[in-house]
Amino acid sequence: MSHLFFGYFASMIIATSILVVALKNPVYSALSLLVMFFHVAGLFVTLHAEFLAAVQIIVYAGAILVLYLFVVMILNVKQDDRYHNQWRAAGFVCAPLLIEAMVLLSGGAKARMTGTQAVPGPSAESLAPDNTLAIGQTLFSTYLFPFEVASLVLLVAMIGAIVLAKREIGEPDNPNPMLRTKAAE
């Protein structure tokens, strides 16, 4: 049963992530990324991480994707451009990584069969039944300092985004110098 769920979620995640890269229109790419986020959230539920599944949908699908779609619609780009000529670079990066992953995984399976396990197996006690409570307790005790640093990161990103995207007072709508001189004439 769990294999069935995993197979469905994994196949949908792979299919939609390939669609994100392959689709021409950025709006369609963002929408297939939305479908992928929902399936990743489903995968989190099967992995007993219910709180993260909810956060995944709220933050990724609710906030980040909407931001992407806003920018795509604001910029209103023509979709004449597609891929550029780095197929060879992509191949050189991906083929060794793929081979490496295959070798590592097959080696891991062999080690498990012979009984020489590099990593300890799953421990006996199960996770706490209340996932949100357990995450809250871990987050505010062990990871309290990283949590505060994360709030600082968010503050800096907020200020940075405002500074980068704002227009100076008195700056014209179209800063293209050609158009500006034409308008002045």
Partner: peptide, 29 residues
């Protein structure tokens, strides 16, 4: 591993992703 540290780190990765998207889209604009 029955360890909640991984889920907490996903939380932090989400924070960084949100910050990255905000700054990246501002740069794009």
């Amino acid at each position: 591993f029955r360890d909640l540290g991984g889920q907490v780190f996903v939380f932090f990765a989400l924070t960084v992703a949100a910050a990255e998207v905000a700054v990246g889209l501002a740069i794009i604009i």
